[in-house]
Amino acid sequence: MGKRAHGQTLGVAVMSAIESEGVVLGGLPEAQLPAAPLRPRRAVVRGAAHRIAGVVFIVCLLVFMIGPIAWLALRAFSGLWQYPQLYPKDWTLSGWRQVFNDPNLRHSMRLSFEFAPIVTAASTVICLPAAYAFSRYRFPGRRFLLISLFATNAFPKIGLYISMAGVFYSLNLMGTFLGVVIVQLIGTVVFMTWIPAAAFSAIPRSLEEAARDVGAGPLRVFFRVTFPLAAPAILVAMILSFLASFDEAQGTFLVGVPNYITMPTEMYTLVLNYPEQVAAVFSILLAIPSVVLMAFARKHVMGGRLAEGFQLR
């Protein structure tokens, strides 16, 4: 659930950029220059007090951000570990064996890896044209639709399951592969439209027009000019979709029973019910794809690529 909300927020953020671009960039053509970080300035951390405060802040941040994950990772390999020992006294891989020998868990892991990319692809295919339309055409109700795409997602899902179940049954989607794809797709729509829409808006029309002037057809213009320029933002949106789909638990359970039960659903059971080790092992396994994604995407998500989506026309 959580990751989806982050996606929404990002999408909204981009949208705000659509609307606020004037104030950020107003009268500042230099803003289009890549915003490289400044040279280090010794003045920033002048004085020992400052430096100590900085170090304390950084240490606290490290413990706060990484501590829980590291502590959990230790658990995955620990045997008996009683309070108040600082680290486990004996080490074991039994938790790992237990996870890999459970056919249900293996199956749900495979399912998760199947659904997430498919949902991402489907969402991209459905939403990109819409994103393009939102950025290029001023049709009546445009802003209303954009905002309601987000607003409907702000309704707590738990209040909707019964009516959602009714809809899925009426359309014969319950328990089907397609049904699960749809229920996960719902959570990805917002940022798959908003982030690319912002990116498309960032591309000057003059570029497209120039391409058309030299005789390129509209499709060719889109794929040779518009799409490559918007690709970084689209990639970010796709990564967020992937994570949202990967993280979806209860909606998937609602629609997917009995054949499609994915990892996050199993995770609830594990976390609350199993020996701590097994839960820790499973957590690590679940985190692996995300970490791989992060290694791959960090440069784009962090390195100003997202910010690029903000610099709009």
């Binding site: 829980p68 994950i69 600082l86 976390v271």
Partner: peptide, 30 residues
């Protein structure tokens, strides 16, 4: 890099990790 780590950790796991970290036999207490 560290500050975006949580973006890539599923919320269920994050919550569990945080609970264990601050629990009566967790890191902070230890």
């Amino acid at each position: 890099a560290l500050s975006v780590v949580p973006l890539f950790i599923p919320v269920v796991i994050a919550s569990y990790a945080i609970l264990v970290f601050y629990a009566s036999d967790g890191f902070i207490k230890t």
